[in-house]
């Protein structure tokens, strides 16, 4: 583990991975500064990048902003978890039963095509002005990608594999847990990654309409006070929060759907083999000592 981390963080490797995005960032900042220099964009609308960085550090060093970060993060994470739970809870029966699918699908699609910004004020009026309303808005936005991806995953399980499970006499539960769930996980995680970002959007939309605190509140406050570099700095914070949520889902995916990642598959296989060998040695099944190589076995 530590060796892998050290390898990933080696300067040469980091430099190789980072130069393309850094080059793009440099070009972007160059164009940005040029636009300001030739007065193509007013400084009151688009501040200098360095001013945003200064604001970011000042805000990060202040005490008050962390309450807002915590509020937005909580709304987004809870909304995501709620939306994901509902999405999965409805996708599974829909995937298993055509009648359930016919029953639920039209409403799931209708919910998706309804502009959520339009119903956000109503949700706040119904769910109240506290965290709940923001969590529900985030959940409603996060629901659909999880639902549709999980459903797609369940419906596209390999027919040959199904046939094999049937021929081996697997029960419905065994088929579900050992075939359908693992097969649909890659698709489910694709939905979860999309939903994580969308939940943050939902939380901020809710904060724009009614909230005492949160990064959405700060963006509005700074914007109306013409503290525009501060507003951009808060947007930068929101971006980092979005990346954090996405990264967490990515990590969870790598840990759960390990068979899609060669390195993790090999590592896990090694760990399992070592564990099995240790158990056998403990039980006296095979003599301990160096494991035979593939050539030796042949």
């Amino acid at each position: 583990m530590a060796r892998r981390l050290l390898h990933a963080l080696s300067p040469a490797r980091l430099a190789r991975r980072l130069w393309p995005p850094l080059l793009f960032l440099a070009i972007l900042i160059g164009v940005w500064e040029l636009a300001l220099a030739v007065d193509y964009v007013s400084e009151s609308i688009l501040p200098h990048p360095k001013d945003i960085v200064v604001s970011f550090y000042e805000l990060a060093g202040s005490e008050f902003v962390w309450d807002d970060v915590a509020a937005t993060l909580w709304e987004a994470v809870a909304g995501f978890a709620l939306g994901a739970a509902l999405g999965l809870a409805l996708a599974i029966p829909s995937g298993l039963s055509p009648i359930m699918r016919q029953m639920l699908n039209p409403y799931a699609v209708a919910l998706q095509v309804t502009p959520r910004i339009a119903i956000a004020p109503l949700i706040i009026a119904w769910a109240g002005f506290g965290y709940n309303s923001k969590i529900w808005i985030a959940a409603i936005i996060a629901f659909f990608p999880v639902y549709v991806n999980a459903l797609t995953g369940i419906l596209t399980v390999d027919e040959d594999a199904r046939e094999m499970f049937r021929s081996l006499g697997a029960s419905r539960w065994q088929t579900f847990t050992h075939l359908m769930v693992p097969s649909s996980l890659p698709s489910m995680f694709a939905g979860l990654k999309t939903a994580a970002g969308l939940a943050l959007v939902g939380a901020v939309v809710g904060e724009f309409i009614s909230a005492e605190r949160g990064l959405g509140v700060l963006v509005q406050q700074f914007s109306s006070q013409l503290a525009i570099s501060d507003a951009f700095a808060v947007i930068l914070m929101l971006m980092f929060l979005g990346l954090l949520l996405y990264g967490t889902m990515e990590w969870l995916e790598r840990a759960t759907v390990f068979w899609l990642h060669d390195a993790r598959l090999v590592a896990r296989s090694r760990r399992r083999a070592a564990k099995a060998a240790k158990k056998l040695a403990r039980d006296g099944g095979v003599p301990s000592g160096p494991r035979p190589t593939l050539v030796q076995r042949r």
Binding site: A81, L82, A85, L86, G130, Y131, I135, E212
Partner: peptide, 18 residues
């Protein structure tokens, strides 16, 4: 996490402080 969130989403709340 999902079940905790459902519990939270359905419960009372307060984002007030000051």
């Amino acid at each position: 996490a999902a079940f905790i969130a459902i519990g939270v989403g359905c419960g009372d709340d307060d984002d007030g402080g000051d």
